[in-house]
Each structure stands twice: as C-alpha cells, then as structure tokens.
Design a protein around this nucleic acid. Structure first.
Length: 448
RNA sequence: GUGAUUGUAGCUCAGCUGGUUAGAGCGUCGGUUUGUGGUUCCGAAGGUCGGGGGUUCGAAACCCCUCAUUCACCCCA
C-alpha cells in the first residue's frame, strides 16, 4: 500500500532556492562572527536529558523533545508509576536523552567538560538546529536554526558592546532595519525590590514582557492574580515608563542590586559611545526575557518593518556552568533566529535576485553530437567556466524549455550544422538573439 | 497544555438548502509537418473529496471520533 507522504508538525523541507537564501543569511552571520574572533564548535543533536532539564524554567521543560530509550524500554519501569499513568515519573525512566532546546546550555556543558583545554576568554560560534515541542504558528517552528555567538570566562562589559555591534553589523549587511533593545536583569531585580516584590520577581518579568501585546490593563490584571497589590502596580507603571537611565536612578537608590545594574548599563554605554551604529539601540525596561539563566544585561532584536516576534536575543549569564561543576565563569552571548530572519526578509523582498548560484550556460545537442557536447562541457569547466549539459538529444523544443525553466542565461547549441562549420550557436535566452561563435570567442565571453 | 480555523487534482480554489458519470485556472505530458524556450492553438493524463464510523433511498456536503493544517494564547527564535 502506498502511503501519503507528509511532514511532522512544525517542520519543513527546504528546496534549492530556500537553501540558497538561508545560506545567504548564514554566510553574513558567520563572516561577522569570524571577523570578531569567534571559533566554530558543534555539539550533538541529542543531550542527556539531565543536561537540559531545569535550565529553561518549567515551561521550557515541557517543550523539550524526549528521545525514547532503545531496547525494551518498559522493562525496568516502576509498575506503580505506570499503572497510575504518572507521565512525569515514567518519562525519566524511559527517556534518558533529549533534543537540544537551544545552543547555550549545550555550550555551557561543553565548556564545563573541556575547561582544561579552553583558553579563556573563549569565544565560540555555533550554527545548528534546535527543537522545541511547541505548537507551530507564524514564525514558530518545532525545528529551527539558531546562530549563536558566546563568550565565556570574562565579565567585561566590552563583550556586551561587541555583541550589540555584531547585531548591528549583521542586520545592516542583510539590509534589514531592526531595533536592538537593551535591559538588565539586575535593574529589574532592583525594581522588584523597590516595589517590595522581590519574591515575585519571575512573575513580574513574565508579566511586563507582555506589555507590548496586552497593554497595562492586561498586565495589571495578571499581576493582581499573581499577588501584587494596586500600590505596587502603580509604582511599577511609573518606573517602567522611564526611558533614560538618569531618571531611573533615584528610584533604585535603596536597592544595592538595582544600582549595580545601572552601573553596568552605564559602563556599556561608555563602550557604545565609542562606536557608531546604523541600527537603533534602545534602553527598554519592559524587556525581561523568559530564560531564567540570565543575570545581567539582556538583549533582544525586533524587526522595525514587519510584524514578527524577536529575531534574536541574548544576555549575560553569570552562573550557567556552575550546575555542571564549573563556578566563577561568566558568559554572555547572543542568538540569531535564522528562520524568522528568513521569513521577514522574504516578506520584505530583501533577498538578492540571483541567490541561487548556478551556471549561466547550458549545452544542448542533437543526435549526432551528444559526445561532442560532453567533451565541450568538460573543456569549458576545465577552462574555469561553469556549465551544465542536457543529458540526451531530446527535441530542441524540450531542451530549450528546460533551459528556460531553469533560467539559464545562455544556451550553447552543438548540432551537426555547428560541427560542420566548426562553430557553436550561442543563444541569449533573454533577448532571443542567436550568434555563431568560435571556441576562442566563447572562452573570452564567459571568462571573468 | 488551552481556544478557534481549515482539509476536494501536483498547486490555488469552485461545488447553492444532501440528488445522476466531482469542476475551473495554473502546472505536467503529448501534438501543432521532423533545429529553438519564454507568447498561439488542439488534446491527454491526474481525485479512496484527510481517515474511520454513523444518519439517509442517496453524503464532498449533516452528526460523532480521529489525524493533519493554519492562527491566537502560554512561552519563545
């Protein structure tokens, strides 16, 4: 029986053009990373589940893809857990591996394991897929590429500035106008302290992150259900509307950690003042970011001219390697969401017309000249000219149509007439013009 | 995990309140006097109407279940 082919939820195929376009994005990002001294690494698709769980918050754990153990995986499962259908307990017994959820945590694991071989500060980049068991929707897939650059082993805020500069450079190179939003988790903690809600810090960040979407009314309502009172919410409203660092400082004088955050932002700006950027960089106190491992500056990139979630994000994580037994190694990094950048660039028509690098020239032949065609193709390629060849002496109509469909700019016709005249017929597929051309002329025309 | 939405040819979609052999455009393939595409004209192939069950004399259409899609929420790139 024939089965109807289909793709798993949230995944897609990439045809030749899509791959070319994606590589166009990768190439820009990669070039920029390398230009700044980042070195490439790759890590396995699968990690031990224990490496992944507990790093992304409760929600993140739910979105982890688990890999079923091999063999008789039910053999050793606790019968009680099984009969009670306790999925949480059973899963840990039947699955010891999971698909990576991002590239940052595997990197932290990599650093902890290779600490003796690594020279700190260690700058690495990594372009690989990640998987999230999320319901797919616009700009959201279950399988997608992240392009990460991270530095571990230095707490210098110079790196925050460098990463912002990288965002700036890449999006400028892609001709995609964006807004780079900056905030600091310490400042947010300070704000929580100031309004007397330090124990509700996570709830606060999750709520205010939605301000853009549901406004103060919605956020206020959510905060109330989380245990905030009207007084606190009102205070929070006032603080978060602040757009200048100087205006914020008076609010946080009582908070040691808040002042530390402000100090960090000030230092960051000292660096940024030394360079000029094409994209907008803004302080945004409403930026929170859900990943709980961030401890200092946080960054997020949004498209200015398209409705799409963030195109990238990142931040400082002071302790991520600690759970893997390596303390006092601070890290900071950013991630580009290649799929979303792709979607936005497609929407805005930003890809160059000829991303699909293919030969300009197609050779077609008749019955008597197939071998001559093959030989000519070989000689042209040897002369450094990219060329393709139709494989059989089909009707010229068919061969021409093929050339047209594949958008070759020129067709080189080798038939019995050409062979007798010791010339080729070269047809320009755009103008329709056809000329007789010698080998030497051909080489000159197509050599660069 | 929650709430909606859609599922008919390779693609985009028609198919009225259930009624004979399910249609169109595009695409594909073949031909249009045997050496020429993108622009003629003619023709052909291609569908278990997502799957299963039910109601009915009769279901693509109505009901139930299931699978899948898209979108929103949660969360995030």
């Amino acid at each position: 029986m024939v089965q109807k082919p289909s793709l798993p939820k949230g995944t897609r195929d990439f045809g030749p053009e899509a791959v070319a376009k994606r590589n166009f994005i990768f190439d820009k990002i990669k070039a920029c990373f390398q230009y700044h001294g980042y070195l490439p690494i790759e890590t396995p698709v699968m990690e031990s589940l224990s490496t992944l769980t507990g790093k992304y918050g409760e929600e993140g754990d739910r979105l982890l893809f688990k890999v079923l153990n091999n063999g008789d995986y039910l053999a050793d499962v606790n019968q009680e857990d099984l009969s009670q259908k306790n999925s949480n307990k059973v899963i840990s017994q039947i699955s010891k591996r999971g698909l990576r959820y991002d590239l940052t945590v595997p990197f932290a694991r990599f650093v902890a394991m290779n600490r003796n071989e690594i020279n700190f500060p260690f700058k690495r980049f990594q372009i690989q897929q990640v998987w999230r068991a999320d319901r797919p929707q616009k700009g959201r897939y279950q399988e997608f590429y992240q392009c990460d650059a991270d530095i571990v082993g230095s707490d210098s805020l110079m790196y925050e500035a460098e990463l912002i500069e990288i965002y700036n450079t890449v999006f400028t190179a892609l001709n995609l106008p964006v807004e780079i939003l900056v905030n600091n988790r310490k400042v947010l903690e300070g704000i929580a302290e100031t309004i007397g809600a330090q124990n509700l810090f996570i709830e606060m960040t999750v709520a205010i992150d939605k301000l853009d979407k549901i406004g103060w009314q919605g956020v206020g309502a959510e905060l109330l259900t989380k245990g905030f009172n009207h007084d606190q919410i009102e205070k929070l409203t006032k603080i978060l509307d602040i757009t200048k660092l100087a205006d914020l400082e008076p609010w946080l004088v009582e908070s040691e950690i808040g002042l530390l955050g402000i100090e960090e932002l000030k230092t960051l700006h000292l660096y940024l003042d030394k360079i000029s950027l094409d994209q907008d960089v803004k302080l945004d106190l409403k930026l929170a970011r859900g990943l709980n491992y961030y401890t200092g500056c946080i960054l997020e990139v949004k498209a200015k001219t398209a409705a799409m979630g963030s195109l990238g994000g990142g931040g400082r994580y002071a302790n991520l390697t600690e759970v893997f037994g390596l303390s006092d190694v601070s890290g900071v990094g950013i991630s580009f969401g290649a799929e979303r950048i792709y979607d936005v660039m497609e929407e805005l028509n930003l890809f160059p017309p000829n991303v699909l690098a293919q030969p300009q020239l197609l050779i077609i032949t008749d019955d008597d000249c197939v071998l001559d065609g093959f030989e000519t193709a070989y000689k042209l390629r040897k002369a450094g000219i990219a060329v393709d060849l139709y494989p059989s002496p089909a009707k010229f109509k068919k061969q021409m149509k093929y050339a047209d469909d594949r958008k070759f700019a020129f067709v080189l016709i080798i038939g019995i007439q050409e062979k007798e005249q010791q010339k080729y017929a070269l047809k320009n597929m755009v103008t329709g013009e056809q000329i007789a051309i010698s080998w030497d002329e051909l080489i000159v025309k197509f050599s660069k």
